[in-house]
Amino acid sequence: MDVLARYESLVDDYEAFLAACERPLPQAVRVNGIKASRPADEEDAVERVREAFADEGVEATPADWNPRVLRVDTDEPGNTWPYVHGWVHGQEEVSALPPVVLDPQPGEAVWDAAAAPGSKTTQVADLLDDRGLLVANDSNLGRLSALRSNAERLGVTNVAVTNQDARNFSLNPFEVDAFDRALVDAPCSCEGTIRKNPTVLDDWTQGHVESVAGIQKGILRRAVQATTPGGVVVYATCTFAPEENEAVLDHVLDREDCNVVDYEVGLETSPGITEWDGEQFDERVREAKRVYPHQNDTGGFFCAKLEVGE
């Protein structure tokens, strides 16, 4: 089926949306302050990375909304000195959004519920200044090795990696009663990655969407429960499907003490939708943000910021 046609009524400029979905994604890297910064001097990590790229003939242009994200004019950012040294991590621009919205503060305890392969985990570690307990969990043992190797190359030392089902995650191994913040970068149908994986929609089924949505609801509920009153939970997917986005928020708003709140980010976005396929959602899901590929020339994304009730 034509999966994207489901969204014709949601997108402001459907032709531009389709055209963007067919274009390959620009190459981007994220600057990793843990290794690119030199505490002893004042030089900015971003400038140091850009200079190192320039020495190799690679132009690196900071994104307007996040100067730590650089668009690079090479197809192989992995074969550069900044990569070898862990100064950068290859990461799609819009995927750098959830940790920014999470806004972790150095020293806090943070849970990344579905962490592998670790792009956002390592970004959270960087925002934490590599201080405080960062628990990176993934239920898929096979994907943990990618998480671990990314964390190590990027010099992360404040992470504990666990292999639990996030839906009934136990904090028992740790001396914390609750996390200050939690990130749910949920497993999803990945429709928004179509620019990177043109075949991603080939195996799309409504049944898979419904089944993954069930998992998402379980993980997000557990994240709200495991976060301290007043704490922040960020829910993100790389899909357009409302079943996996607003419907998940609606489900959790109905069952856990939390709220969806607005946030500022310098990207063009669309608000969360309150109606889909005959179903009405809690009005608060409007505060979530949808990112369509044509809006900022990125992949597709969904990101909501939740505050846990006091």
């Binding site: 943990l144 010099g155 030392t157 992470v159 504990a160 990696v161 666990t162 191994p173 740790f174 001396e175």
Partner: peptide
């Protein structure tokens, strides 16, 4: 962290 602790990884090798 509490010792002993059973996790997959703790900090960096």
């Amino acid at each position: 962290a509490p010792s002993p602790i059973e996790v997959e990884a703790l900090g960096m090798t």
